[in-house]
């Protein structure tokens, strides 16, 4: 079984893991079948506001155990272990964490049969359970991991290789070659896509420095290269260096030049609440180049450790090599302080499966203090 990133051991999730939490209460909402992220965020906040006692008032709460597995999520009373709630995993629509609050949204049943009118939408009654825990984010990540493991299992049972889902979709764009790097799989996994709400003072910048994802990137958009210490973005705790910024307040940044992405971030300066759509990515990406023989062309050019051009559809591009990225490692050996000639030598000799770790050169310059970040 392929490992799915998250806080839990894969095997443990099959059997079920337990987290302690305080149950604050439940409420119901009516929702369409697959609402957009902004609607889901409003729903989660609405559920929290309805259940949470106002500041200064006593909050009724019950100690519970949350049982999470790839089959179900159960809420058990902490003392008697009696099941208060039990939801099959496929009926859970989404999980949200807001600070120390966790909101679980489960679909109950069709609230209204679809009307014959063309524009009618199926409506669902959602039951929303609200919990408090210092580990709200961790629990949300564990439930997200259970979603992902269950989904992969579902694909496998349907005769689809989960690792091939992304590769099959990519055929039109890159020809019949296979993609070896995990980018597509990573980008198409909804677990990695997040909607983050950042609260800030009016006139205050978000406190992010942006760079380009690099020519050849499967998701051409701005990448977070640095976070201003103490700035709204860092304070939110939800962003990290390497994350792709795909939209701001619902406006897509994908495919736009860096200057346009920066302008879009500057534009929200006057607002007090900003919604960012991000795809969480590590700052360093790994490209895997399958090169059966050392005589086969690698398909990219390097200048002082930085990739400066790429052969479209070549083995390097398919493996995840991106223009404008600095090579950090080749087959596990750091090359950050290696002379250009030696890097070329290492690349020329490397064959069979070449693992190359890279990061945007601009991010590297910021992280190593060679350049001062311009925070937006």
């Amino acid at each position: 079984l392929q490992e799915v990133p998250g806080p839990c051991d894969h095997e443990d999730l099959l059997d079920g893991v337990i987290f302690g939490a305080k149950y604050l209460g439940s409420t119901q909402l009516v929702s369409e079948r697959n609402p957009p992220p902004s609607t889901r965020m409003a729903q989660a906040r609405e559920a929290m506001d309805r259940v949470k006692a106002p500041e200064g008032e006593t909050q009724p709460m019950t100690e519970v155990d949350l049982f999470v597995s790839t089959k179900r999520v159960k809420v058990l009373t902490a003392d008697s272990q009696e099941a208060m709630m039990d939801h099959a995993l496929q009926t859970i629509s989404y999980i949200a964490d807001i600070g120390n609050v966790l909101v679980l949204m489960a679909r109950r049943r069709l609230a209204r049969r679809p009307a014959p009118q063309a524009h009618s939408r199926q409506l669902y009654r959602m039951i929303c359970h609200v919990f408090h825990s210092e580990d709200a984010q961790l629990i949300a990540q564990a439930i997200g991991q259970a979603f992902s493991v269950a989904y992969r299992q579902f694909l496998r049972e349907s005769g689809i290789d989960p690792s091939q889902v992304g590769a099959q979709q990519s055929l039109g764009a890159t020809g019949p070659g296979h993609l070896h790097n995990g980018d597509l799989d990573h980008f198409s996994n909804s677990e990695n896509c997040r909607e983050v709400c950042i609260e800030k003072r009016r006139g205050e910048g978000l406190g992010v420095a942006l760079v380009e994802s690099g020519w050849g990137s499967l998701l051409p958009t701005a990448v977070i290269a640095n976070l201003l210490h103490g700035g709204p973005a860092e304070r939110s705790g939800a962003l990290s260096i390497g994350d792709r910024l795909t939209a701001i307040n619902g406006t897509s940044l994908v495919g736009l030049p860096l200057a346009a992405c920066q302008a879009a971030v500057r534009e929200v300066k006057s607002q007090t609440l900003v919604t960012l759509s991000i795809i969480h990515c590590p700052p360093v990406t790994t490209a895997i180049i399958r090169r059966p023989h050392a005589r086969e062309q690698l398909g990219f050019c390097v200048e002082d450790g930085i990739i400066c051009s790429l052969l479209r559809g070549g083995i390097a591009e398919r493996g995840g090599v991106r223009v404008g990225h600095r090579i950090i490692e080749i087959n596990g050996h750091s090359v950050v302080a290696t002379p250009h000639a030696r890097i070329i030598e290492l690349l020329t000799e490397a064959h069979v499966e070449v693992h190359i770790k890279t990061m945007p050169a601009a991010t590297y310059r910021l992280l190593t203090g060679q350049e001062q970040p311009v925070y937006l």
Binding site: R33, R45, Q90, S93, I95, A96, I98, V196
Partner: peptide, 21 residues
């Protein structure tokens, strides 16, 4: 505070109308 949402990919595959009651 920051709000993070993780959508269940199984949501799209569930039969319409099916759910817990």
């Amino acid at each position: 505070s920051a709000l993070t949402i993780t959508v269940n990919p199984m949501e799209k595959h569930e039969e319409p109308g099916h759910g817990e009651e």
